[in-house]
């Protein structure tokens, strides 16, 4: 494993009486793709939101590069180069594709929005990641699930950053779209970016990730290099752990 860019230690987070995270500990190597898998409600999205500064953990430590902190704010996470594609995508349905891609980081000329430059840049970005949206000046509320995910990815890629967190980025995509997205993500790694990706599709995970962490009931169970395990082994592992927990 190469140099560690992100290290998470003993993160815990509680919502009312639900302990979403108990003891999340993992490390992400610079320039790698790390996958986070686990059942529904195992706390994956909660961890991503904590790493993005959208939630504060109750306990634990986050280290990004040299910076070490207990919790992050959204701005701090952004300043540290963390970009996120949220599970709910965080799109404003009333705004157009262009406006959504640039929300919070608009291009301006003086005090005014530079719509032409933003439209040009958005078109280029979407072309690069093979997302086809016929009319970029229509509200995004009417786009398909895959197109919306494409937009969210385009927005995350627009801002400079070296750590990309993706929460089920291809869940709503068709075969062709998810293939091109996966190719894109692999391409980003080759360009030196670091990716932490959540997915329920183990085959996809195996095709893409260098390292896999399994999250179960808010606890990180295992971390293995992809080469040291197989889909069946991993599935078996998750199931066995599940039975163990049931017995407790």
């Amino acid at each position: 494993m190469g140099e560690t860019i992100l290290s998470v230690k003993g993160i815990a987070k509680r919502f009312g009486h639900i302990q979403a995270l108990r003891d999340a500990t993992l490390e992400v190597a610079r320039g790698s793709i790390t996958a986070l898998v686990g059942d529904n409600g195992s706390g994956k999205s909660t961890l991503i939101q904590i790493l993005s500064g959208n939630l504060l953990p109750d306990r634990g430590e986050i280290q990004v590069g040299e910076a070490c902190c207990h919790g992050l704010t959204i701005r701090r996470a952004m300043a540290l180069g963390i970009r996120t594609v949220y599970q709910d995508l965080a799109l404003d349905d009333c705004k157009t594709s262009v406006e959504n891609i640039f929300l919070g980081s608009e291009l301006t000329r003086g005090p005014f929005l530079d719509r032409r430059a933003m439209a040009r840049e958005a078109r280029r970005l979407l072309e690069e990641i093979h997302v086809e949206i016929p009319d970029l000046t229509e509200p995004v509320g009417r786009l398909s699930g895959g197109q919306r995910q494409g937009l969210a990815i385009a927005r995350a890629l627009r801002r400079p950053g070296e750590l990309l967190l993706l929460d089920e980025p291809t869940a709503a995509m068709g075969i062709q779209e998810s293939h091109s997205t996966l190719r894109l993500l692999a391409g980003l790694r080759d360009r030196g970016m670091t990716l932490l990706i959540i997915s329920h599709n183990l085959h996809q995970v195996f095709a893409l990730a260098d390292y896999i962490y399994v999250l179960r009931a808010g606890r990180v169970l295992t971390g293995t290099a992809t080469g040291d395990t197989t889909v069946d082994a991993l599935q078996e592992q998750i199931l066995r752990r599940e039975r163990e927990e049931d017995r407790l």
């Binding site: 993005s52 959208n54 959204i74 701005r75 952004m78 996120t84 949220y86 709910d88 965080a90 799109l91 404003d92 349905d93 009333c94 705004k95 959504n100 929300l103 919070g104 980081s105 927005r155």
Partner: peptide, 13 residues
């Protein structure tokens, strides 16, 4: 955006 999706606005910093 506050009317459309305040959470999206917040998350974009």
């Amino acid at each position: 955006a506050l009317g459309g999706n305040p959470e999206a606005l917040k998350r974009s910093g």
